[in-house]
């Protein structure tokens, strides 16, 4: 079955992890592009061709938090349609985490979920209405 939100951008610098995610997601009918650094990821995300962005927080050039800020800045990306899901293994201070969660559409700890569980989670996302 083809998912409604089909195009995914995975911004993840750990190749082994993105490899696993791409495998599980492709099998479930998603199309996935991978970027390994923050700046390139941001540039690609701005093309606005993605339904879902999986965003790691600890990534090279600019951090995931900065990418998130740029993407949520209406003057930069006024009509971003993508759902932004944070995928991280980083523990945050409560206030920082809340700040991130309030801007993102989901917050997943990678060590707590398997690729399959990620697929399950994404399949339940509703399309964005920007």
């Amino acid at each position: 079955m083809t998912p409604t939100l089909k195009n995914i951008l995975c911004i993840e610098d750990e190749h082994f992890i993105s490899e696993l995610y791409v495998r599980a997601l492709t099998k479930a009918g998603y199309e996935v592009d991978v970027e390994m650094d923050g700046q390139k990821g941001l540039d690609r995300a701005k093309s606005n061709q993605y339904d879902i962005i999986l965003l790691d927080l600890m990534i090279p050039t600019i951090t995931g938090i900065e990418v998130l800020r740029h993407l949520r800045d209406k003057s930069e990306t006024p009509k971003l349609k993508a759902r932004i899901i944070i995928t991280t293994n980083l523990e945050q201070r409560q206030d920082i985490r809340e700040d991130i969660e309030s801007q993102a559409d989901g917050y997943l700890v990678k060590a707590s979920i398997t690729p399959h569980e990620l697929v399950d989670f994404l399949s339940q996302l509703e399309p964005n209405t920007p």
């Binding site: 082994f16 992890i17 696993l20 995610y21 495998r23 523990e91 990678k110 060590a111 690729p115």
Partner: peptide, 24 residues
């Protein structure tokens, strides 16, 4: 301990991912 344990998360993510692939 928390700092050390934190470092386990990435290999753990991978191990759980690979196990799932193999199981499937």
């Amino acid at each position: 301990i928390a700092l050390t344990v934190h470092e386990l998360r990435t290999p753990l993510t991978l191990l759980r991912g690979y196990i799932e692939v193999f199981k499937e």
